[in-house]
Design a binder for these strands. Structure first.
Lengths: 175, 175
DNA sequence: CAAATATAGTTAGCCGCCTTATTATCTCAA
DNA sequence: TTGAGATAATAAGGCGGCTAACTATATTTG
């Protein structure tokens, strides 16, 4: 499973070499960024591995959940792209595979010839209905070692981080 | 940029639907997992966008840094794969592209006919030498809104999370 | 020494992300 | 009313992950 940050020993000598080259080398920030990247990758992997149990990925799961739980929304590729924050082209790919696997169906939209109406198939509904209890049980279990106060502590830290890097993130995207 | 977690409004109705279906629905854990995934994605995107400035990615950057800063290591694809925690095949792909772009060179290893010795080319060295100051300046700047106490707070939260999910992560992989 | 096994690297092919066209349809305004 | 521009979906092609299978070389062992 990917990670890309070298472990302690290599990272340590790497940082010491770098600190010789870079004036004002900011150890704290670099360590923090490494921790964040490692922790991020770990979280993503945890969920991807979990979903793999049902042959799903984060993206496939997100689409199935939206179709299953909010069927009144008359989902189209564009709506899914907006809801899941990926591009239309990515949705096309996910929808291709999900429909190839028989979980969803495309049909012409009655009102607008450009649109495609997406629905869960019978087997798609079955899949979701079957996985939901285990899925949410598992999420609860993953974090079961944390008490309410600790969860709050983590959420606070994430919010703090969010606020601190938000302007930076916005500037990045423009670049 | 990907994210996959729907925003507040959709997420809210989604969760309320789910809580009707799932007995003992653990709001706190689900919210935490959503926050973690969003925050993870944001962190990864921040760095990927930052690297894109030089036509790099996390993986390409990791390899260049190791070749540049620890040249005495006599790097081979396998060593890089171990150091960066990706598969050999992934390293082959990254090395293909980096060498196509003229940043690194492959040569036969003198001692062992199976091995390939990887080195930075002149232009690879130039690239790294040129980007290092800006890169680390940028990292420092990204987190410049945080004081030492806040950085510690975030690191503590990450460590807490790490300890809490570690056994879960290990079990997952086996699955 | 020869055969079995281990190791290094690549290839092939899948997935999900992206950007940049392209095509089809719809809407609006001259 | 028709022609320009907006919008919906897909296609094509790149990237970086992965697994599984393959080749070539070393090593170990009977």
């Amino acid at each position: 499973m990917e990670n890309l940050i070298p472990d302690e020993t290599i990272r340590h000598t790497l940082l010491s070499r770098l600190s010789e080259q870079v004036p004002d080398f900011d150890f704290a920030a670099v360590q923090l960024s490494a921790q964040l990247l490692m922790s991020s990758q770990q979280t993503v992997n945890l969920f991807e591995n979990h979903f793999a149990q049902w042959g799903l990925s984060q993206g496939r799961f997100a689409i199935l959940m939206l179709l299953y739980n909010l069927p009144e929304n008359d989902w189209t590729p564009v709506k899914l792209a907006e809801a899941t924050h990926v591009t239309k082209a990515t949705v096309t790919g996910l929808v291709n595979n999900l429909s190839r696997d028989g979980y969803i169906t495309r049909r012409q939209h009655p009102d607008d010839g450009r649109k495609i109406s997406l629905r869960l198939s019978e087997s798609g509904e079955q899949l979701v209905r079957g996985m939901i209890p285990q899925h949410f049980e598992r999420i609860s279990q993953i974090y079961s070692n944390l008490d309410g106060q600790q969860i709050k502590q983590i959420c606070d830290a994430l919010a703090l981080l969010q606020r601190a890097i938000m302007p930076g993130a916005a500037r990045e995207i423009r670049q």
